[in-house]
Design a protein around this nucleic acid. Sequence first.
DNA 1: TCACTCATGTAATTGGTTACATGATTCC
DNA 2: GGAATCATGTAACCAATTACATGAGTGA
Lengths: 201, 201
Amino acid sequence: MSLDHVLLGLLREPASGYDLKKLVDERICHFWAAELSQIYPTLKRLEKRGLVRSRSAVAKRGRGRRVYGLTPAGRDELRAWLGGPPHFAAERMAYLAQLYFMGELEDLHQTQRFFRAVRERFAAKLATLASIERMWAAADPRYPQRLPDEDLHVHLALRKGMHSLQAHLEWCDESLTTLNERLEPTGPGQETAAAVHQEGL
Amino acid sequence: MSLDHVLLGLLREPASGYDLKKLVDERICHFWAAELSQIYPTLKRLEKRGLVRSRSAVAKRGRGRRVYGLTPAGRDELRAWLGGPPHFAAERMAYLAQLYFMGELEDLHQTQRFFRAVRERFAAKLATLASIERMWAAADPRYPQRLPDEDLHVHLALRKGMHSLQAHLEWCDESLTTLNERLEPTGPGQETAAAVHQEGL
DNA sequence: TCACTCATGTAATTGGTTACATGATTCC
DNA sequence: GGAATCATGTAACCAATTACATGAGTGA
């Protein structure tokens, strides 16, 4: 039911389904994704429940638009959700399932390649968030200490991604170091041959 | 389609649907959850595809069991999945959506309560993982440097949770500090009254 | 006898994705 | 004329959850 609340949150300013999709892709997709084919029926459902109200409008380009806005009931629903307990859902991380069972392959080089690919992905995401933070800082000299309270919450959400992705990178680096030690046990001096033998190479 | 592969991974040792549910809840649920009502149909589907084979068995207690085991085709499928690229899916974090829009409430005390609840949740999860790591260390003197390669992968997956949750806690602490500074701007000396007024208290 | 655990399943519903269908306008 | 963008939707499908149904044995 959270897409409902995401749309209510975005609809503090009136918008069409198409507009909402763009907002989701630009700002929300870092923690919630949605397709147009899900957004349109959701808006209809919200309108039937009296949480939003729509009116037809003319578009500058293309066909007519349907623009939605929050009703007082919609605002109440949004506030009740925001004021309620934090909502957690069990995350599904397929890449961790792959890693968990990867011993089956008996090939640490494959594990190494896996971690390099994972690291690249996380690094790209972190770079995206970092560039968003730079844009914020450039656009608002109050960032972050003196941000108005409303923007503060967006800032705090952004910080979550930065902390989290930084930790992911550290995990990848730690893991790659561990793998390296097993694959190249070039310890001090004459142990090398024995260690190589021990590792089954 | 990942539950398919999780079950294939677990079925390197034969097990019933009921057994698999227990394994999922004990070891896998940190990155993939599944209900019995999903596991049973999935096993049937995997058997129809020739990836597992079942036989009836007698249970010590209760009614008869159906025990599944991997077929060679199942093992191939598992290995192909493990050897393929890491699979990422867009995560949905409803609590971040709540935070993102929480400026609407115009109540930093509520945000504070929110972060305390979030922190508690993450701390509990981290404690769970830490106790798992302690059990590993107690049970196997080789942990973690000299673990056999197969267990190494499970160890690396566990480390992901530790890094990640630690970062979540740091984010909560950073956020609570930020909120505290805004709510109690007890700066050097006589500013206090003015600052309190500025915050609208 | 009752609660609990072991054990297997189906049905209904929800939440979400992918594919498909349509139509207007603008820019090259 | 054709591609891109703006714009709204439906249909089919998939993954997963919740609720429901059944049945056998164990221990208090």
